[in-house]
């Protein structure tokens, strides 16, 4: 069985591309939260919960939304056969630092449940699952850098041996100076799609190239 990368979205500070084409760019350099907010408006996500998320989830939600939009026929699939595989370097450290800060001052000690809930990296997969009703396999890996071999091999195992038909796969990292997201969709190649996007064979080399360009 062969599989195909059917769409992808990449976000780096102030710039979003979908399927290799520029989707949104901020002319002036903005702080990450302002940039994410502007991209949300430009992309017409219309999902007020977005504003409650931490930066990591906002990055991942935007990239996933835009990658899925570019691959319309995924909606016809059984959502329990769609897997989410994500990875990053910094886990949930951005929110971890916020929670640690909230408990550092004993005179002003107000740990916030809505910050604490984001101190787990896999919450991004929960948010995606809720938004898109995706209920299949989940896995969140931590690697020191983007690891196409790992994502490729685990996606392939799920597609070949578990009844998984489609994988939303990616890297989403939020840290002091290292903020980026790369989300791509993998489908079995026997899955008919009318509106075919920029399709590529599912290989670790292709994944690496898409991430690096």
């Amino acid at each position: 069985m062969n599989a195909i990368i059917s769409s992808y979205c990449k976000i780096v500070p102030n710039k979003i591309s979908v399927g290799g084409k520029l989707f949104f760019e901020e002319a002036s350099e903005k702080e990450l939260p302002e940039f994410l907010s502007a991209a949300y408006k430009y992309g017409e996500l219309n999902y007020p919960k977005f504003h409650k998320m931490d930066k990591l989830c906002k990055l991942g939600m935007l990239a996933t939304e835009l990658a899925l939009r570019n691959c319309p026929d995924w909606k016809a699939l059984d959502k329990s056969r769609i897997a989410l595989i994500f990875s990053n370097q910094s886990s949930s450290l951005d929110s971890d630092r916020n929670h640690a800060h909230a408990i550092s001052d004993k005179q002003n000690y107000f740990p916030s449940p809505s910050v604490f809930v984001y101190t787990l990296p896999n919450i991004i997969m929960g948010e995606i699952a809720i938004k898109h009703k995706i209920s299949g396999e989940n896995a969140f890996f931590i690697s020191n850098q983007f690891d196409p071999e790992l994502l490729f091999s685990y996606s392939t195992i799920l597609l070949q041996t578990t009844g998984t038909e489609f994988v939303v796969c990616g890297w989403v990292n939020c840290d002091r100076t290292h903020n980026d997201a790369f989300v791509y969709c993998v489908k079995k190649s026997n899955f008919k799609e009318q509106n075919s996007g920029p399709e590529l064979d599912h290989t670790s080399e292709n994944i690496r190239q898409l991430y690096n360009t």
């Binding site: 886990s91 787990l120 990296p121 896999n122 919450i123 989940n138 896995a139 969140f140 890996f141 931590i142 690697s143 020191n144 790992l150 091999s153 685990y154 195992i157 799920l158 070949q160 041996t161 578990t162």
Partner: peptide, 28 residues
């Protein structure tokens, strides 16, 4: 091999065992 880290909330441990099982079955 660089150790593989799984961080998936409270299912992390059981999920890591399931992933390990799949890697072994697939001769990784």
């Amino acid at each position: 091999n660089t150790p593989l880290v799984v961080s998936n909330a409270c299912i992390s441990g059981l999920l890591a065992m399931i992933i390990a099982k799949r890697f072994i079955e697939n001769n990784r």
